[in-house]
Amino acid sequence: MSKATVSASTSAASKGVYDDVDHSEAPGHGNSPAAWTCVIVMLIGALIASIAFVIANTPVFIAGAVVMVIGLLAGWVMRKAGYGVGGSKLKNSGH
């Protein structure tokens, strides 16, 4: 074994994926009507698909997967309509 010390130079180290992330703003938690609708509909779809998987019913399983996709689309549409985080429908109008 060698007793030489090993040191890594900071300039020679490769830059990581998350090194340029700005942590000055809070990331938020997506607490909006669009996010809640998306999650609730997708949870219902997952419940349907899970029950269908246990009872081995393929058409109902596919229906549950379709409900999950519908939940994802509903959240996206609501976000575009202004019900997402920082959306125009959620701004305080001073009333």
Rank of each mutant, 00 (worst) to 15 (best):
I70M: 14
V67T: 14
S32N: 02
D19C: 00
F61M: 15
S11E: 15
L43D: 00
E25T: 09
V60D: 03
V66T: 12
V66C: 12
G28W: 04
V60Y: 07
A52T: 06
S14T: 10
A74R: 05
K80A: 13
I62R: 01
L47R: 02
Y83G: 04
D19I: 07
C38A: 15
A26K: 10
W36V: 11
G94A: 07
K89H: 07
G82K: 08
W76V: 11
I51M: 10
S32Q: 04
L90P: 01
G87N: 03
Y83R: 05
V60A: 15
T58D: 08
I48P: 03
Y83W: 15
H29Y: 11
K15F: 04
S24K: 08
V85E: 12
K89L: 07
C38V: 04
V6I: 15
P59N: 05
S11L: 13
P33F: 07
A35K: 03
T37V: 12
D22V: 05
N92A: 11
I55K: 10
G86K: 06
T5A: 14
D19P: 06
S93H: 11
H95T: 11
V6K: 05
S93T: 14
D20V: 04
V69K: 02
I44K: 04
I70K: 06
G45L: 09
G45R: 05
V60W: 11
G64C: 03
G45Q: 02
V6S: 00
M42H: 02
N92P: 06
P33H: 01
V66W: 07
S50T: 13
A63N: 02
I48Q: 07
T5E: 14
F53T: 13
